[in-house]
C-alpha cells in the first residue's frame, strides 16, 4: 500500500511540474538551482564556522549572543529562514535544545534543511514535554542539576545552539574547531 501511495505522489509531482512549466509559472532551470543550493551549498558546515569562531574569538562570541543575525551575516550566512537569529549558549548549568512543535522551523542558512527526525511527530511532540527523555534517546545524559531550556520556534526567530567547547581543544585553529561541531550539537540534541 505504501509503495503505490508513493508512486501516486511521484506521478502527481511530475504532473505538477509539467503543468506549471507549460503555463509559464516555473522554469525547470530555476527548480534545479533551488535544489542545488540546499543540496550542496547550504548545510551545517556553515553553522560550524559560526560556533568555531565564537569559541576562538571572545569579541565575536559576545557579538553573537547580543546580535546573532548581524554576527552570523558577517560570515556570509544570510537569507531565507535565518532572517532573525538568536544564539543560545550551553554551559555546565544550562543545556539548550531547539524544536518546532508546529511545523519544521529551522535555521536554514546555518544548518541547511532539517533532518527527517526533526520534522517527525515523535520529536515534535516529546521535545517540549519530556526533553530529558528525548536527550537520553539521543544518548545524552545530563547531570540532574543542569537546567534544560527548550526553544519552540513558533515565529520567524530561528535558534542556534552554541555547544560547550570540548575539552582538550585548546591549541586548535578555527578550521580544526569547526570540524568538531556537529549538526545535532547545534540543535542541542548532542553534546560534543
Amino acid at each position: 500500500m505504501h509503495g503505490s501511495h508513493l508512486s501516486d505522489t511521484q506521478r502527481r509531482v511530475r504532473a505538477l511540474e509539467t503543468i506549471l512549466t507549460e503555463k509559464g509559472y516555473v522554469d525547470p532551470a530555476t527548480l534545479d538551482a533551488l535544489i542545488e543550493t540546499y543540496e550542496s551549498k547550504i548545510g551545517p558546515r556553515n553553522g560550524a564556522r559560526v560556533v568555531a569562531k565564537a569559541w576562538a574569538d571572545r569579541e565575536y562570541r559576545d557579538w553573537l549572543f547580543s546580535d546573532a543575525s548581524a554576527a552570523i551575516a558577517s560570515l556570509g550566512f544570510t537569507g531565507r529562514q535565518g532572517e532573525h537569529m538568536v544564539a543560545v549558549e550551553n554551559t555546565p548549568d544550562v543545556h539548550n535544545m531547539v524544536v518546532c512543535t508546529l511545523c519544521s522551523c529551522y535555521p536554514w542558512p546555518v544548518l541547511g534543511l532539517p533532518p527527517v527526525w526533526y520534522k517527525s511527530a515523535p520529536y515534535r511532540s516529546r521535545a517540549v514535554a519530556d526533553p530529558r527523555g528525548v536527550l537520553r534517546e539521543f544518548g545524552v545524559e545530563l547531570p540532574e542539576k543542569t537546567e534544560i531550556r527548550v526553544w519552540d520556534s513558533t515565529a520567524e526567530v530561528r535558534y542556534l545552539v552554541v555547544p560547550m567547547r570540548p575539552a582538550g581543544t585548546d591549541g586548535l585553529s578555527e578550521d580544526e574547531l569547526a570540524e568538531r561541531v556537529t549538526r545535532d550539537g547545534m540543535i542541542g540534541t548532542a553534546v560534543l
Binding site: L6, T9, Q10, V13, R14, L16, E17, L20, Y25, V26, D27, T30, L31, D32, L34, I35, Y38, E39, G43, G112, L113, V116
Partner: peptide
Amino acid sequence: PAFHAEWERRAFALTLAM
C-alpha cells in the same frame, strides 16, 4: 541526505518557486 527521492526535490523546489 537532504532529500530521499527525486520527487521530494521537485516538490520542495516547486513550492519555493511558486
